[in-house]
Lab assay of single mutants.
Amino acid sequence: MDPFVVLVLCLSCLLLLSIWRQSSGRGKLPPGPTPLPVIGNILQIDIKDVSKSLTNLSKIYGPVFTLYFGLERMVVLHGYEVVKEALIDLGEEFSGRGHFPLAERANRGFGIVFSNGKRWKEIRRFSLMTLRNFGMGKRSIEDRVQEEARCLVEELRKTKASPCDPTFILGCAPCNVICSIIFQKRFDYKDQQFLNLMEKLNENIRIVSTPWIQICNNFPTIIDYFPGTHNKLLKNLAFMESDILEKVKEHQESMDINNPRDFIDCFLIKMEKEKQNQQSEFTIENLVITAADLLGAGTETTSTTLRYALLLLLKHPEVTAKVQEEIERVIGRNRSPCMQDRGHMPYTDAVVHEVQRYIDLIPTSLPHAVTCDVKFRNYLIPKGTTILTSLTSVLHDNKEFPNPEMFDPRHFLDEGGNFKKSNYFMPFSAGKRICVGEGLARMELFLFLTFILQNFNLKSLIDPKDLDTTPVVNGFASVPPFYQLCFIPV
């Protein structure tokens, strides 16, 4: 058959498939802009700032609406009420993970971030239990974070109060905490193996944040037939998995079943207990991918939040002064901060919360999916439909947070200066898919920041009023603009 005829037939089939998918069930789905064949609503979305586009569309179609990214149908949730109703009140029905062709290629359905069903539930339950087990290797997770915080302070001392970009050092600290939990080992910041790991993690975040990856996920045929950065992403992930597998083999040879040292040991012990169960989800494949998931999810998000926190503290020296006064009063100079201190430091706690609220790190979270046909607000959402959640619409709700575009710790303080919780605080998402490392991340943010401010004054290279804190939105995360500062020993 003539190649031209084959091409026309293929394009015609794709067009018909697109029209059929977009028209099927439209009477039951939430409203939304009319999609174009094949490309859907992509032309109506700013790929570099999806969150802003969703906010604009919500003003037209309401808090629940339908979009098509290519052939992929998505239902968008915008605003606290619908997000709570879906992710919390109907948590089980909305607990699936959205379709990610690239991740599915890399992870093969294993791990904790992109798995679904029984596998996801069992691996998540085990990971939560293990991360909360403060007795691994007779050292609590808090001990590990405190140790890394001391190392971080010593690295900052080496800058000798000269101007520096904190990106690298602030990236090393949370990565080392995860390494300590998974591998029972922290690395020197100049260790070549550690630097290679950091390089792969950072490069992957840069790649994932590009519009090209959005295109690959919406048109998965590209993955096999086109060159691009997605190939580098898959190569980096394969490198990390190979490295983790080597460490798993080392653990198998040296493990003491009665004295687990780290996450890998705990997983291997669980595998041993379930070795007679042919349906067990505790396999080497799941261990390797879960460890890679924890490394990827637990490094860049925390380091970016820390980097943004220091920029905001530079911009608002009056806030920094209040935090340091609270540190001096509650902790002093002669001991290290600990998590028990947080309950006695409402202002510092409010500042950490406000940093996370203000920066809105992951504006749309990772997409969910419905696990069955769901009736939601008089609409029928078919099983498997991807759910896109606007966390921006919750964290920047102007009824809950007056002047949401302003950095103001009073958003989390009552009139008496006591810490005030808010149900709208969802930087880790909400419901059954809430970030498994939430507790660890909150511990790291509090301890790293208090250790830094206990030991250093922060000095800006320019007038604080002239510092730009506008986030650089890159399609996946909101990151701070480049800046330098000086760490002046107190």
Rank of each mutant, 00 (worst) to 15 (best):
V6H: 05
C10Q: 00
L11Y: 07
C13P: 08
S23Q: 13
T34M: 07
G40N: 02
N41W: 00
I45Q: 04
L57R: 02
S58T: 08
S58R: 10
Y68H: 14
F69Q: 06
V75P: 01
V83E: 03
K84R: 13
G96K: 06
G98D: 03
N107M: 09
V113H: 05
K121F: 09
K121Q: 12
K121S: 11
E122V: 10
R124K: 15
F134P: 14
E142A: 05
L156H: 01
K160P: 06
T167G: 13
I169P: 08
A173R: 00
A173K: 02
C179I: 09
I182L: 12
K200T: 14
E203A: 09
N218G: 09
N231P: 05
F239L: 14
M240K: 01
K249A: 11
D256Q: 09
P260M: 06
D262E: 00
F267I: 01
I269Q: 08
K270E: 14
L294S: 00
L294H: 02
A297C: 06
T304F: 12
L310V: 08
L310A: 04
L310D: 00
L311K: 04
L312I: 09
L313T: 02
E325H: 13
E326L: 02
E328N: 14
D341K: 02
A350Y: 02
A350C: 03
H353N: 06
S365H: 02
P367L: 05
D373Q: 07
V374Q: 05
N378A: 07
K383I: 05
K383V: 06
T385N: 03
T392I: 01
N398T: 12
E405G: 14
F407I: 00
D408Y: 05
L413T: 05
L413S: 03
D414N: 09
G416V: 13
F419L: 13
K420D: 03
K421M: 15
S422F: 02
Y424C: 11
P427F: 01
F428T: 02
S429C: 06
G431M: 02
K432Q: 12
K432N: 15
E438S: 09
M443C: 13
T450S: 13
N455S: 11
L461M: 11
I462G: 10
V473D: 15
V473F: 10
